[in-house]
Amino acid sequence: MPTSIQLRSRQKKEIEYRLYTRELSDYIILDQSAEPPKGTDIRKLLSNKPVKLVTHGWKSSAENSVVMGIKESYLKNKDVAVIGIDWSDTANDYLYPLVAEYTRDVGAYVGQFLDAFCYLYNVSGERLHLIGHSLGAHVMGIAASKTKVTIGRITGLDPARPLFEFPKKPNALSLDTSDAEFVDVIHSCSGVLGVQNPIGNVDYYPNRGTPPQPGCESIFFLLEACSHARSHIYFAESIGNPTGFPACWSENWTDYLSDTECIQQTYMGENVDRNATGQYYLKTNAKEPYARNII
């Protein structure tokens, strides 16, 4: 059963942890203590697999394209365990400021889950890769900062800007480089729905990182939402095409466009170089496949 948590509103809210692997025909729900249903042994399923934990943002759920798209791409292309974290009982509130405030509580409970999971199944922090979109990126940052283990990697997919960067929240309540050994960020709606400034060890700005992203120009009133979603779509595509999004280091977009040679190159997405630092820029296609390097 999903775990019920007590948030500051004194209303019970639920978080659900859904485990997916290639061997399973459906997901298994783990409780807050990382225990599966009685009679279920998941140790063999986990084995020594990397563990990818994926979560959504405001007005979304683990049934929507963020978690499902990334999960499906992983299981198709890699032998990994995926845990989809559903906090939609909180995220579906129409009052964004309230949901933004609750990321502190949700992140703390996810952090407790991570401690229990690592202890029960002897999983090192290095095996964990936390992936979050929008508010979910900050949930993952808070969760990692609350754990007893050092998380190997966090990927922030257009981390939410309102009430996090503008106005600025303390680092303890948002995603930043102190939360894991390596933090990579994809900006696709920066300055509007997503944070504008670099907050990771490496920050990627596809198509300048601002709205409208290519292919989002014709969606009236929804330009920002379309562009905001591009971050998780690019990432999901990169899992099956690890060299599909080559990016070049540059001081800014204007310099990137004027540079005749890419001096420092790395790949945006799943196949990121953990030695990379700084800001990287690239162009994408306007429709699928978005990667310009097709394999």
Rank of each mutant, 00 (worst) to 15 (best):
Thr254Met: 11
Lys146Met: 09
Cys189Lys: 06
Trp253Met: 02
Val195Ser: 15
Ala160Leu: 06
Arg161Asn: 10
Asn207Ala: 02
Tyr205Ser: 08
Ser145Phe: 02
Glu217Arg: 12
Tyr256Lys: 08
Ala236Arg: 11
Arg208Val: 04
Glu224Pro: 10
Val185Pro: 10
Ala180Glu: 07
Val183Ala: 13
Asp255Trp: 03
Thr147Ser: 07
Thr177Cys: 15
Tyr205Asp: 08
Pro167Gly: 11
Phe166Trp: 13
Glu165Asp: 15
Lys146Val: 07
Glu251Val: 13
Gly200Met: 03
Cys248Thr: 05
Asn207Arg: 05
Val149Gly: 11
Gly244Asn: 10
Glu237Ala: 05
Thr254Tyr: 13
Ile186Glu: 01
Leu257Tyr: 03
Thr147Asn: 00
Gly152Phe: 06
Leu223Cys: 11
Pro162Lys: 14
Phe245Glu: 00
Ala247Phe: 10
Ser227Glu: 01
Thr147Lys: 09
Val192Pro: 01
Asn201Met: 14
Leu157Glu: 07
Ala143Thr: 06
Cys216Ser: 00
Asp203Tyr: 03
Lys168Trp: 02
Glu165Met: 12
Gly200Glu: 00
Thr155Phe: 09
Asn252Trp: 10
Ser145Gln: 14
Arg161Glu: 04
Leu222Tyr: 15
Ala229Thr: 05
Trp253Glu: 03
Thr147Asp: 03
Asp179Ile: 03
Gly209Lys: 01
Asn207Gly: 01
Ser227Cys: 02
Ser227Val: 00
Asn201Gln: 14
Gly152Trp: 07
Thr210Ser: 09
Arg230Met: 08
Val202Asp: 00
Ala160Glu: 00
Gly191Cys: 05
Thr210Glu: 11
Gly152Thr: 05
His228Val: 02
Asn197His: 15
Phe221Gly: 04
Pro212Ala: 13
Phe164His: 10
Leu222Lys: 15
Thr177Leu: 15
Ala229His: 07
Pro246Asp: 01
Cys189Glu: 01
Pro198Cys: 03
Val185Met: 01
Asn201Pro: 11
Pro167Gln: 10
Pro198Lys: 05
Ser178Asp: 10
Gly209Glu: 03
Ser178Val: 05
Gly191Asn: 05
Ala143Ile: 02
His187Leu: 08
Leu223Glu: 14
Pro206Ala: 07
Arg153Gln: 11
